[in-house]
Amino acid sequence: MNVMYFAWVRERIGVPQESVETEAATVNDLIAELSSREERYAAAFADTSALRVALDQELSDFGASLVGVREVAFFPPMTGG
């Protein structure tokens, strides 16, 4: 699946997006898997209360299933307006 990062999450992880091969069942599982791979992910995902997630471009939550999902995006709370 395509995993995207925005704002400081992008800066901390170092890439705007990447293709990730994973069997993760939920967003939380994906976060755990990435965090165990490299320190930069663990640093970015250390406090998920400071993060938001969108699945296929719709806001979702960390317990949500990844079945059939093609695009996951992680970012801080939005500051539009």
Partner: peptide, 26 residues
Amino acid sequence: LMDYLKSRAPFWKKELTSKGADWVAA
């Protein structure tokens, strides 16, 4: 519209000053 655009539209602001660059916190 303003209340929702502020926290539900996917934009992120960063301010550049003489002290450096900082993301605006929600």
